[in-house]
Nucleic acid binder design. Structure first.
Lengths: 243, 243
DNA sequence: GTAGTAATAACTGTTGTAGTCATAAGATGG
DNA sequence: CCATCTTATGACTACAACAGTTATTACTAC
């Protein structure tokens, strides 16, 4: 039997069906706090709970393609940095049927969420409650900014936990913080991003040097305006091959 | 649009099936070289090419459960350290049908493969050809130890590449090298493992100190035997909570 | 001008780690 | 038993990365 004949005789229905979805962890910094885009579930199961934006993978599209399509549909965004996070497949994670989800995560400036939240009122940028320090890991909850806890659907607290852990492990050696900032930014703003992600304060001079020595940023010669006191220089992220 | 997608999502029959498999990257060190367990494909597609051991996920089993089941079935091993690597889902990665695979990887001492290779002659511990240094990444090929290249099926060269990259990034700060060694080992053996994984030689005294300072190992007071010259002390990996 | 505040620079100390050299230990062969 | 070989192990030195502290500069507001 040659390959052609074999493929024609192959029966895909011989294997049991498992649903495959992509869920998105879309993170931002709002007032120095790490936030994620959540969507209130309008129907059962988990009605009224909060879930990550997600959707089924189409049969003819790649995993990252599906993630980008859902990013456009649900969050009205395109062309941002996106990375695969982890796959979740506990048999009982969704009560409807067996669903395995591949989680992706992205970092976006707060302004990027404006269009999505305008178009869909069930979307909220929720503040994250990270009950651990460093890269310990574990589930991560959410609150509405007034201290009111938001119940998360399915295993989405686990997914958020993985995202935060990945982020904390990666921010020191990969130039990912810049996705959260506008094109031009001050060193103080960059530091606030790092502090929000790592969940701890740091001293200013060592931070300055680390950033500059890494070669990821360059000064523009311009300065911020509208400050009450001495304005800081505006820096810009340097795109380099391999990053 | 969201509503429509939502409704479609609830009907399992609305989408053609996507197959879900688990593939295993089972790594070992043989004579100072990094090797992976490969299986010669007996049938189409990719007949005669070399593939990672893998299999379909059952509808009632978790992803890691599936990985452990396949580990037992195909490689006759149990209870070893196993970690999820990455998910691969390019639409054309398998010519039979749309198949998404979740790759797992494990590190095992050479002896652990003996039973599997005895039971199944189509299994081979193949030497890896890593065409890049550091953590650059990219596909990784395989050869039979006599310099003869082994053609890899599907996207398995990519999967191997991801595994090597993950390993190189993790070995310096996670105690994973010990999975490749017997219960008691000399510092020289441990160093050979690190050199095989990182693909470069290193000096002995700094390596000794790093390992001992990390607190992952302790001396046993015993010494290796049968050496022509001064025998080295045998060390043991210290199990610690959180590792 | 003066005061106030934040940005930036200079200085200092600590830590981690690498390289080199010296010593110790055991096996082998005379 | 002793010389000699090879390797393991420890001691010393040097360097690089990085943090903390203090001083200086620069701008705004009154």
């Amino acid at each position: 039997m040659d390959e052609q004949t074999f493929l024609e005789a192959y029966d895909p229905g011989a294997f049991p069906q498992i649903g495959l979805t992509v869920d998105l962890v879309l993170l931002s910094i709002v007032e120095g706090r790490l936030c994620a885009l959540l969507q209130k579930r309008a129907d059962h199961p988990a009605k009224g709970m909060w879930a990550l934006p997600g959707g089924f993978v189409r049969p003819d599209e790649g995993l990252e393609d599906a993630a980008r399509r859902i990013l456009g549909d649900k969050a009205h965004m395109q062309d941002c940095w996106l990375e695969q996070l982890y796959s979740f497949g506990a048999p009982d994670r969704d009560p409807r049927m067996r669903i395995v989800t591949v989680a992706y995560y992205a970092l976006l400036p707060r302004e990027a969420f404006a269009a999505a939240m305008q178009a869909a009122p069930e979307l909220v940028l929720a503040e994250l409650d990270i009950g651990w320090t460093g890269e310990a890991g574990g589930p991560v909850g959410a609150n509405d900014g007034q201290g009111e806890e938001m119940a998360l659907a399915f295993d989405h607290a686990e997914i958020l936990g993985h995202a935060v852990k990945r982020l904390r492990g990666k921010i020191d050696y990969a130039p990912i913080a810049f996705s959260l900032l506008p094109d031009r930014f001050t060193l103080r703003e960059l530091q606030e991003v790092h502090e929000a992600i790592l969940g701890r304060q740091m001293a200013k001079p060592p931070f300055r040097r680390r950033m500059i020595d890494q070669g990821w940023i360059e000064g523009t010669g311009e300065f911020e305006t509208g400050t009450a006191f001495r304005p800081a220089e505006l820096y810009r992220h340097i795109e380099r091959k391999g990053d």
